[in-house]
Computed example of a mutant assay.
Amino acid sequence: MEADMSAGDLDRRVQFRRVTRMNTALGQEETWADLGSPVWASRRDVSDGEKAAAGGVFSTVSARFQIRSSTFSRGITAKDMLTCDGREWEIVGIKEIGRRDRIEITATARTDR
């Protein structure tokens, strides 16, 4: 059985964001808006790498964030994103840890922005 996550493990604030669609004179526009309030999370980097695209090279990092399970956190989807330490993270995986104890979110971010 895994040990419970203590408050000391939750040492970062993350803000979840969700895309919203607005009708404008030019049609529909998509923008990102904050989803709820920031929550405490732990972060563990799991990999990094470089990729080439459109003639340039950029680097990425993947990390696993854990947050407490709640009605709010169980509503987060891979269509959402999170921000942490000034960086935008694309959510690529979400899983439940324990019996609704924690949510683990795997996410990737570019490190050159």
Rank of each mutant, 00 (worst) to 15 (best):
R18A: 06
V19K: 12
V19T: 11
V19L: 06
V19Q: 12
V19M: 06
T20F: 01
T20W: 00
R21D: 01
M22Q: 11
N23C: 07
N23A: 13
N23E: 11
N23P: 12
T24G: 13
T24Y: 03
T24S: 13
T24H: 08
T24C: 11
L26K: 07
G27V: 00
G27H: 08
Q28E: 14
Q28D: 14
E29G: 01
E29W: 00
E30C: 10
T31H: 10
W32E: 14
W32P: 05
D34W: 01
L35M: 12
S37L: 06
S37N: 05
P38M: 04
W40T: 03
W40V: 03
W40Y: 09
A41H: 05
A41L: 08
R43W: 01
R43C: 15
R43A: 15
R44M: 14
R44F: 11
D45F: 03
D45N: 09
D45Q: 09
V46I: 15
V46M: 11
V46Y: 07
S47W: 02
S47M: 03
S47N: 08
D48Q: 06
D48A: 10
D48C: 07
G49R: 02
G49K: 07
G49L: 04
G49Y: 02
K51T: 09
K51I: 09
K51S: 13
A53Y: 05
A53S: 12
A54V: 06
G55N: 06
G56D: 10
G56S: 12
G56H: 05
G56K: 10
G56N: 08
G56P: 00
G56Y: 06
V57Q: 05
V57N: 04
V57H: 03
V57D: 02
V57A: 08
S59V: 00
T60K: 01
V61R: 03
V61T: 14
S62I: 01
S62F: 04
A63K: 00
A63T: 02
A63Y: 00
A63R: 01
A63P: 08
A63S: 14
A63F: 04
R64K: 14
R64W: 04
R64N: 14
R64V: 15
F65N: 04
Q66N: 14
Q66F: 01
Q66P: 12
Q66W: 01
Q66R: 13
I67Y: 07
I67H: 03
I67T: 11
R68Y: 11
R68E: 14
R68W: 02
R68Q: 14
S69E: 11
S69G: 07
S69C: 15
S69D: 15
S69V: 01
S70H: 10
S70W: 06
S70Q: 12
S70G: 12
F72G: 05
F72P: 09
S73N: 12
S73A: 15
S73E: 08
R74M: 13
R74K: 13
R74V: 10
R74T: 14
G75A: 08
G75N: 13
G75I: 00
I76M: 08
I76D: 02
T77I: 06
T77P: 10
T77Q: 06
A78R: 11
A78T: 15
D80Y: 03
D80V: 02
